[in-house]
Nucleic acid binder design. Sequence first.
DNA 1: ATCAGTGATAGCTTTCGACTATGGACGTCA
DNA 2: TGACGTCCATAGTCGAAAGCTATCACTGAT
Lengths: 299, 299
Amino acid sequence: MDVSLRQIRAFLTIVHSKSFTRAAGVLNLSQPALTVQIRNLETALGVKLLDRTKRSVEVTPVGLDLVPALERTLHELDVTLSDLREVGAGRRGTVRIAALPSFAASLLPGVILACRRANPAVSFLVRDAIAAQVSTLVASGEVDLGITGGDLAEAEFDVLHTTLDQICLVFPGSHPIGRKRRITVEDLVDLPLVLTNPGTSLRELIERALLKIGHTPTLACEVTYMMSAVAMVRAGLGLTILPTSAREIRVERGLRVRPIDDPDFLRPVVIIKKKGRTLPPATAGFLDLCIAAMRHERR
Amino acid sequence: MDVSLRQIRAFLTIVHSKSFTRAAGVLNLSQPALTVQIRNLETALGVKLLDRTKRSVEVTPVGLDLVPALERTLHELDVTLSDLREVGAGRRGTVRIAALPSFAASLLPGVILACRRANPAVSFLVRDAIAAQVSTLVASGEVDLGITGGDLAEAEFDVLHTTLDQICLVFPGSHPIGRKRRITVEDLVDLPLVLTNPGTSLRELIERALLKIGHTPTLACEVTYMMSAVAMVRAGLGLTILPTSAREIRVERGLRVRPIDDPDFLRPVVIIKKKGRTLPPATAGFLDLCIAAMRHERR
DNA sequence: ATCAGTGATAGCTTTCGACTATGGACGTCA
DNA sequence: TGACGTCCATAGTCGAAAGCTATCACTGAT
């Protein structure tokens, strides 16, 4: 027969309590059960581990040598497994998530805070990246969740939640366009725009929408970070177009933000995971908080 | 249910082979058995460890974190247990033995050599000590075997073997006593003797034997080591009395050795162990060799 | 000498784990 | 596109393992 954990635990318990009967009590077992366990263990190992003698049990020299090693190993295993149970309950673990920069800066901080408040031992790994990278990160398994634009192609992902992100025009308070009641795509034509880099989903969305009415954007400046775009606008270099989710439009004073009233500027946003992948429990909890926060945001 | 080693091994095997079916082959198990093992393991831990998806099995992030720790622990355990099996087979281990100096220097080296030839990984701990100390060492468990004089009092020990050690008179080749055909206790009276310290079993034996015929030894000199005694005799300081087992009587040239023809000078020698104690397998093998060597010696 | 306490043994019962057979999902290839 | 093969899951059955109760044999203490 093979050696089992039960047998090892039985052995160690007997060594500590120096008695089959007492050990049986500790292990919630009958004394004969223990006798059999030890007999089997000794048979399996081919060594006598305990000397059953008058009045009490003594460990053989061989058994004594064994005790520290077994104890160390068993303790390691127990720690590993009890940690794991914590992970299983969602009280521990690492939430690994990739998100568009706008969400990484606006939605996530609050959600992370809430999640950490509920389970202080949970840690977070946030990768902020443009849409194309987000899906790659999810597909490769480098992160478990992705928050990205809704234009993903394949059945490689499960869509866990969908919401909409209103794209807005950002302009100085003094700009004449502020007087319009409603801003449409047509209004964007010929306006000097500060846009994010080509390849970003936002840029593509804008170009596509303008192309639809036969135009291309009038580029005032091209930047990588939305923060830069906002600064440009503030300096009067032009106007920019950012999603509502972008934190940048809220921190900069003296700028005005107005939705662009066009279905093309209501960008779908999804939370995705790799298909067939189970989310770690802590991450599943985090997801729920995310969805709740998005619902709350859209109200 | 509790986590078992089988389950952990099953999990790791599946992780490596990335397939239930293949892992089942490796483990000589049916595939459904593995399915059940993993299901039980996951239930016990409250975590999904494997994602069973199309065509192949993937480890969940949580499971992946777990693999190295489990592997390390399991490997440690395997090493510990396989070492132990070696010990159990007597191929490894430490033989701990206390012996009277005469035996430690004469009988033991050969036996140890033979034992080591049979099992090269066995190591030895030899304590050479006078009779009183030998029994103490055995009683305390500091050694497993003791070779000592036969005058031990208690039922605290098991006597594993008994032999007799002829006590001899050692004298210079030129000494007149060499002309006697037979040496008796009476011959010892008034001879200048080089004796070992009071408290040694040999000294007590000699004093007791002389006292029986109403005498006390004529002390030429008192020494601790038999080697010293022999050197004194060699220098003509007196005669000495040593057991046959003493190696010293063989190495010194120009000395003569004659048995003292008296039952009092046929000292019983025993091999003992603590009662109720199981000998480690390597030590049991060593004991057999000791007994064989003693039998051979007395022929 | 009796009694209390220890571990071992025996007989019975329950539980666990393994096997065979089969089902459902998915990928592949004609 | 449909038949097939592969993979894991499920169901039912059976045997082995492990548990329990009752009792024994031994030892040490009263």
